[in-house]
């Protein structure tokens, strides 16, 4: 591997670019300088921290530590899904629906990929398991958050239509068909777009990273294809599952639309 190590000086130069940009926005009174600097500082601290954690994890490769890391990642992703909802389910459901479906889809796909496709020994080798899980969780999180947000928003907006259909004797599943379809679409669209644009509009980040690290382009491409399919499957099944569970939860056993189970989130 002919990886060129970056010196602190290299990073400082790059940081100066951001500082320069912040300076320009302050000069132009755009009010972005502070946010830029804080976000920049967060990047440095968070990434250094995660780098240290990963280094420690790689040095003490034990299943328990890998599992703990995975659980922490899942917990944070679950919180992110909930926090991005304008209208979310009250109580534990608000956190539970996203987290559980993410656990089922992202973890299942990661374990499947590790045991059957990538095949490191042991299968939970942190160098493979953690980045793979991270990419899957990150994308599944976005898909589920978009899907759930769209579902609750459209159901709220279209409640008269839904109740009109219920009043005509339609089952709950029929009354929310269009909202469900729209929600699944909006959750899956980013992934479908990414697959369609891959390599033409953008060089995917993971592939770029591997090439920079000295991997032969064809090897990097093979990994990228694998990852894209895994992400699509994870995001897709996760979003479909979350939208299904959430739409079921919007109706009770007598198939009544229960908008009282939703509450306004922080952006509403």
């Amino acid at each position: 591997m002919d990886l060129i190590s970056l010196s602190p000086f290299d990073l400082t130069l790059a940081a100066l670019l951001v500082v320069a940009l912040a300076g320009v926005t302050v000069w132009a009174r755009m009010g972005l300088g502070r946010s830029l600097l804080i976000a920049g500082a967060r990047t440095v601290i968070q990434l250094l921290l995660v780098g240290l954690i990963l280094q420690t994890l790689f040095d003490h490769a034990q299943l328990g530590w890998v599992a703990l890391m995975a659980v922490v990642m899942l917990a944070v992703a679950g919180y992110e899904v909930m926090a991005r909802q304008q209208r979310r389910f009250a109580g534990l459901w608000g956190y539970g629906i996203g987290t559980v479906t993410m656990f089922i889809s992202a973890f299942a796909v990661t374990v499947l990929a590790l045991t059957t496709m990538v095949g490191p020994t042991p299968w939970w080798e942190p160098q493979y398991a953690i980045p793979l899980l991270g990419m899957l969780l990150g994308n599944t999180m976005t898909g589920i958050a978009l899907g759930l947000d769209r579902l609750t928003q459209t159901v709220w907006r279209e409640r008269r239509t839904i109740e009109g259909r219920l009043a005509m004797g339609a089952p709950w599943s029929e009354a929310v068909t269009t909202m469900r379809r729209e929600a699944a679409r909006s959750g899956l669209m980013p992934t479908i777009n990414a697959m369609a644009a891959a390599g033409i509009v953008s060089l995917p980040g993971m592939m770029t990273g591997q090439i920079l690290a000295g991997a032969p382009p064809v090897e990097a491409v093979k990994y990228q294809i694998l990852i894209m399919f895994l992400i699509t499957a994870g995001t897709g099944f996760g979003t479909l599952g979350a939208v299904w569970f959430a739409s079921r939860r919007l109706f009770d056993t007598r198939e009544r639309l229960r908008l009282d189970r939703l509450k306004a989130g922080r952006h509403a």
Binding site: R160, T161, G164, R165, L166, A167, M168, G169, T178, R254
Partner: peptide, 28 residues
């Protein structure tokens, strides 16, 4: 079953809701 109940006990709101493109899509 709730579906059957609402067919037998029909609620007609002041503002009727329509979801399809044409009238006959809304009939049983």
């Amino acid at each position: 079953p709730p579906v059957e109940w609402r067919r037998r006990v029909a609620y007609v709101p002041a503002e009727t809701a329509w979801w399809g493109e044409r009238v006959d899509e809304h009939l049983p």
